[in-house]
Design a protein around this nucleic acid. Structure first.
Lengths: 185, 185
DNA sequence: TTAATATTGACCTTTCCTGACCTATGAGCG
DNA sequence: CGCTCATAGGTCAGGAAAGGTCAATATTAA
């Protein structure tokens, strides 16, 4: 079972205040899973959901930073989510509906990229996507430039492949989302 | 806190986006946003609009200086606005919608970006380019995501703004090139 | 036991809101 | 004309209201 699969279960089961009960599928219902499920449910019928970090933490009886933990560990681009936020009065965390991961080329590439990727491997992925017409020539051009070693000159070598992977995944997910939106029109 | 208290999350109330709402993101309506929206609406049909600071503040139930706050934080030249004002009897604040310059806007932005740029300044540039129709909504989306702090998490803080600047410039160049190619078709 | 996950709290940054005090303009008066 | 005062808008520092980061610890899974 992948890490991702763990937070897609049915309704959470936290009846009698037992700190760690198990749901039907046997997932440990710790607070992180409960938070993840709440968010997942909120996203069922909406393009995005805004959460108020402090309020949610209060209502769940956890510290606010745990919300961040859940988001950074389970609502990542690899999982198909795009997250934005604002601080200050009236701040929020906005989580966009999961971009469906249905086995298309873009998804496969995103999933296959680990935490790091070299420039060459990156180019290969992009060219493949172009050949298979999963992305347009313009999109390929953007991706190639955004992940080109050129951009990373200022950065110590050891960070380059990490950043490249991160940006590539984020951009691919955005392209996919944009494509889906256009198909709906 | 008792163990029991931990599982009381169901009642949590959040604001949610409309499914398939493409136009406006549901902005949180604090007073600053209301003021900003009022000004924006007043500018929809006019090149400029005059506001009376004290009157407006009174009618909105906020202190006059909050009007200044909104103007200096959201109606800056970077956002595409020019503001003038007069004090004394019959004073006013006049907000102009900036006349689009006819040169190449993308180039101007690239030039204005130094070696580093923060996420917020970056967003402002991108939104401004979008407003001026120098880039498309999809391109803006890509740019926003490629420069989102999310991508740079793994990097030591000191490199983030440098890399962001580098990537933003590179992407803008690519977009510009693509635009030129398309004009030739 | 060891590695991965989860939880917590101290401290930080951004955004919003407020009020005290400052500056400019114009009208009226001596 | 020059002074004064009422009527505007301007500035700034401080506090409040959010969310973010990080590293230490605790718990669970392998």
């Amino acid at each position: 079972m992948s890490e991702f699969d763990r937070c897609t279960g049915q309704g959470y089961n936290c009846t009698q205040g037992q700190r760690k009960s198990k749901s039907k599928r046997g997932e440990l219902m710790n607070i992180s899973n409960i938070i993840a499920q709440m968010i997942t449910e909120m996203l069922e019928d909406n393009d995005y959901t805004d959460i108020k970090r402090n309020e949610l933490a209060l209502s769940l009886g956890c510290v606010p930073s745990q919300i961040n933990y859940v988001i950074t560990s389970r609502f990542t681009p690899e999982h198909g989510y795009i997250v934005e936020s604002r601080r200050g009065g009236g701040g929020y965390i906005r989580i966009h509906r999961k971009v469906p991961f249905d086995g298309d080329e873009i998804t496969q590439v995103i999933k296959s990229i680990g935490d790091t990727i070299e420039e060459m491997a990156c180019r290969t992925h992009i060219k493949n996507l172009l050949i298979r017409e999963a992305i347009t020539a313009n999109e390929a051009d953007l991706l190639l430039n955004a992940t080109s070693e050129n951009c990373y000159r200022e950065l110590p070598v050891k960070f380059r492949d990490t950043l490249r992977a991160s940006i590539l995944k984020q951009l691919l997910l955005t392209i996919k989302k944009v494509n889906l939106n256009e198909m709906e029109d």
